[in-house]
Amino acid sequence: MIRIGLTGSIGMGKSTTAKLFAEQGVPVNDADQVVHELYAGSAVAAIENSFPGTAQNGVVNRTELSRQLALHPERFKELEAIIHPLVREGERAFLERQQSVGQDIVLLDIPLLFETGAEDRVDVIVVVSCEADLQRQRVLARPGMTAEKFDLILSRQMPDTEKRKRADFIIDTGQGIEEARRQVIQVLNSIRSGANEEAENHA
């Protein structure tokens, strides 16, 4: 089973691209979605313990958590120490499920793939990218987003130019959805033909 690692900086169109892979029948494990579930489930008590005042009605208030982290960015590591092991646990369960049904390709949507050293957990890395101006425009159009918040998020992410250098494939989302879909199909065809060649060489 080939594990594709999908990543890209904020506003690059990663979530949309993950949906395009899903459209092609590729099961997707979305790390962001897993975190959302953890913030309403098994991570709530540990986060409230480390960041008092962030849990409300049994759910982590992301706005309050973001406020505390903006004041003390050095505490991101503390939050990651709570969240990352739980995310990995969910990922392992997802991979086991897909392996058991004979899936040939799966996609792990990992926003901080390079930053968290997740390269060794995937076979192929796909980086989603677009022009910096378009990225900024997309992010600042999000509700509750500010230029300061955007800069804080960017400061925690590896620069896009570096991600592109480390990618096996790059999908440019700046040319519209149809072009992105064409690139996704091209990437899958390339991965599958590479896997077939390898199988023939070992036959």
Rank of each mutant, 00 (worst) to 15 (best):
Q103V: 11
Q186T: 12
E197Q: 12
A40C: 12
S190D: 13
E162A: 15
Q137V: 04
Q135I: 07
H36V: 06
S15E: 08
V139Y: 10
V122M: 07
I105T: 05
I47W: 08
V187T: 08
L108Q: 14
P52Q: 02
D151F: 08
N49G: 12
D30V: 03
G41K: 11
I185E: 15
R121P: 02
D120R: 14
V44T: 02
V124T: 07
K149Q: 14
I82D: 10
P73C: 09
D151G: 12
Q157F: 11
A31H: 10
P111I: 06
L6H: 03
F169M: 06
S15M: 09
A167R: 08
H36G: 02
R3Y: 04
Q56P: 01
Q99M: 06
I110N: 04
L38E: 04
A46P: 06
K163I: 03
D120K: 15
P159L: 03
A195T: 13
L154I: 13
M12W: 11
M158D: 01
E162F: 06
A18S: 15
V35C: 00
M12T: 12
L188R: 01
G176A: 08
Q68D: 11
V34G: 01
A31N: 05
Q175R: 15
S193L: 11
F94P: 04
A70T: 14
I170V: 15
D168S: 10
K163W: 04
Q98V: 09
D104I: 03
A55L: 05
A40F: 03
I2R: 14
S193Q: 13
R192N: 12
M145K: 03
I177Y: 09
D168E: 12
T63A: 14
N189M: 06
Q98G: 10
E179N: 15
Q137I: 01
E178M: 02
R88I: 10
S190M: 09
A45G: 06
N201A: 13
E23H: 11
I10T: 08
A132I: 10
A46I: 02
Q175M: 10
E78D: 10
I110F: 03
V44I: 08
T146G: 07
T54V: 15
L188S: 00
R181M: 02
P111H: 01
K149C: 03
Q135H: 08
P52F: 04
P27I: 05
Q157R: 08
D160L: 07
E78S: 09
R97L: 11
L108W: 06
E131H: 13
V128P: 00
D30G: 05
H84T: 07
P73F: 05
I177G: 03
I110E: 02
P111T: 05
C130V: 03
R62N: 06
R136V: 06
P27L: 08
R88G: 11
N201H: 13
G117S: 09
Q68L: 15
R67E: 09
T17V: 15
L140T: 09
L69H: 10
I4R: 02
G194D: 11
D123A: 05
D172N: 14
L86T: 05
T7E: 03
M145G: 04
E162H: 13
P73W: 08
P73D: 06
C130W: 01
V128W: 00
M12C: 12
Q135S: 03
I82S: 10
G90F: 00
A141W: 03
F76E: 14
L154R: 15
N29D: 12
K77C: 10
M12D: 11
N49H: 14
R97W: 02
V184W: 03
L140N: 11
